[in-house]
Each structure stands twice: as C-alpha cells, then as structure tokens.
Design a protein around this nucleic acid. Structure first.
Length: 311
DNA sequence: GACATTTGACCTCG
DNA sequence: CGAGGTCAAATGTC
C-alpha cells in the first residue's frame, strides 16, 4: 500500500516546498559541480573547497525526503532516476523482488560481524513503518541502560537484513539513540505512517518541510582526510537510508563518523513488538510534531556530496 | 497453537 | 580477553 499524504496537506504547498527545495539543491549542485572540477584539478578535497557542501547534503536529503514522502508520479519536476535512498531503490525493485528462500539454519552463534556503518531516519522509536522483532538485549559498557536489538520480522520470509538498535541515552532520559543496520529488502510494510497533526493549523506543513539545522555546523570538525574505505562506507550509508516512505529526513553534521539519530522519548501506541522503558510498558499516542521538533541527529557527510547525482 | 519476548550461551573482532 | 552482536531454547502473551 502506497503512502499518501493526508488530505489536510494542500498539495500545492507540498509542490511548492518541494520545488523550492529542489531548486536550491540544483543551484548548490551546480556550484558543487564546478568546485568538483576545481577540486580535481587541484587534488583538493571537496569538503575543504566548499564548506557549504553539508548544506547541500541537507538540501538533498530533504528533497529526497519529500520525494520519499510524496508520490513521485504526482510530481512532474522530479528526475525519476534520482537515487536518493534505498527506499526508492527498494520500491523500484519491488516488482522484481522474488521471495527469498529461508536461509538454512546456521550453527548457533555463527555469523559474520556486520560493517560498522549505520543509517537512520526520523521515526518514532517504535513505529517507523516497519515490523521489528526483538532478538536481543545487551548490557553495554559505560551505558546505564541495556541496548535492545531488533530485526525485521521478514528476515526469514524475505531475507530482509534490516536491523536496528535502540538504546536510551543515559544523560538524557528523554532521548533514544536508534541505529539502523542494512536496509529493508522486504516488500511488506506494516502500514503507512500515520501523521497526526497536533497543530491547530492543519495547513502548517512546517513539520515536514523544515530545512533548518538543529545545530550549528562546526567546520573545524570536518575531517578532511577521509579514507577510501570511509567514503565507501558513507556511500553505502546513504544508499541504504531507510526507507521510511513517509517520514521526513533531517540531517545534521557534527563531524563524527557515526550515522545515528537521537530521538526523544515519546510514549507511543505499542505493537506487539513494543519497547520497554525502565521495565514499564508505555502506551499512548505518538506525536510526530514533537518528535520532529526535538530530533537530534548526527550524520557524517564527509566526502559525501561527491556521490550526489548531479542534474 | 502461533507468535513475540527474554535471556544465557556462543561467536567475532579489536 | 573483553565487548558487542546474534542465536535459539525457554517463557510469556494473545
């Protein structure tokens, strides 16, 4: 089932915001393209040459977000070949997706450790549109709270490798760190993301179209010595952005090489795979506005813009 | 009974 | 060898 915007969102506003974002991205991409040529000539680093690239990243991510949130077929200006996330890729592949054979049971504990990159999107920490099954919980050193491990429930049905880790942030009990590994290859979505508007003004689309950073970017933290391996991981990282077909993305760069997000604790309606909070089960209704306004993310875009598809 | 969660065991990697 | 990640039997829930 495809996600559709709620009727309360005027399509004209969505179009307008989308167009503006893409125009901004286009402008920055052009600049970036020029600088890229300069960079090649000078053997310089793109990030060094153009400190605003992270803004481009943000623009691009936001545009992609909207794309992911909006039926691309309804947006005539979109370059449909644009690959911004695995979400779009997955959807393109959906038709050709063949049910994967359930893998033979391995010997207990036999597994290969995953690469360290992660990806994230903005979600309620329990409800991101996918069905997760908890498969483990671990005490983490120097962490007050246990880390919970979840995998896609279609892991065996469809061989979906998506997993996520949820850990409460000790010094900020209202925030959770959610780290995604791999991306969904399953074609089953729990349900479209519900958007609940708390704002009395239903025409206010700011919750979905806000492109402001949550924090200032510190260029001093830029690591200009990105290794090819790091670049590859980051490229994979981006190409594997999950999939929330209806959740906005917001990215902040803070110079670290983590690709994680912090989400505030917000009581949500729980499915059978609900989480515990200090041993207590919470129930209630999620508030996307609250989530988005309080979201904190750290994403490393170092060396990332060169992978952007340029128009 | 089917499915989800818990939890100790086991494995890999640094 | 310890930390972190996963497995799978046991247990819980509907």
């Amino acid at each position: 089932m495809e996600f559709s915007w709620p009727e309360s969102f005027p399509s004209s506003q969505i179009h307008e915001a989308f167009d503006q974002e893409l125009i901004h991205y286009q402008q920055l991409s052009d600049t970036l393209s020029e600088l890229s040529c300069m960079s090649q000539n000078n053997q310089g680093d793109l990030a060094t040459s153009y400190s605003g690239s992270n803004h481009t990243s943000e623009m691009y991510a936001n545009a992609c977000s909207i794309m992911g949130n909006y039926n691309v077929n309804n947006v005539p200006h979109i370059h449909k070949n644009t690959t911004c996330s695995s979400n779009s890729i997955d959807r393109l592949d959906d038709k050709n997706m063949v049910k994967t054979v359930k893998p033979a049971k391995k010997k207990r504990g036999c597994y290969t450790r995953k690469s360290s990159w992660t990806s994230s999107n903005i979600t309620s920490w329990t409800d991101d549109g996918y069905a997760w099954r908890k498969y483990g919980q671990k005490e983490i050193q120097n962490a007050k709270h246990k880390r919970n491990y979840y995998r896609c429930i279609y892991k065996f049905d469809q061989g979906c490798k998506a997993t996520k880790q949820v850990q409460k942030i000790e010094d900020d009990p209202t925030n959770f760190k959610i780290t995604y590994h791999q991306y969904h290859t399953c074609k089953n979505f729990l349900r479209p993301r519900q958007i609940i508007l708390d704002s009395p003004d239903v025409n206010d689309t700011s919750i979905l179209l806000s492109f402001e950073s949550n924090r200032l970017i510190d260029n001093k933290k830029l690591d200009h010595k990105s290794t090819p391996k790091k670049e590859k991981e980051q490229q994979e990282c981006f190409s594997s952005l999950p999939l929330s077909n209806n959740q906005p993305l917001r990215f902040d760069y803070n110079g670290s090489h983590d690709f994680t997000k912090l989400v505030p604790f917000e009581p949500v309606s729980l499915t059978s795979s609900g989480l515990e909070h200090d041993g207590s089960i919470f129930s209630g209704v999620s508030s996307p506005i609250y989530e988005i306004e309080n979201i904190l993310e750290t994403i490393d875009f170092n060396g990332f813009p060169i992978h952007f598809p340029l128009y």
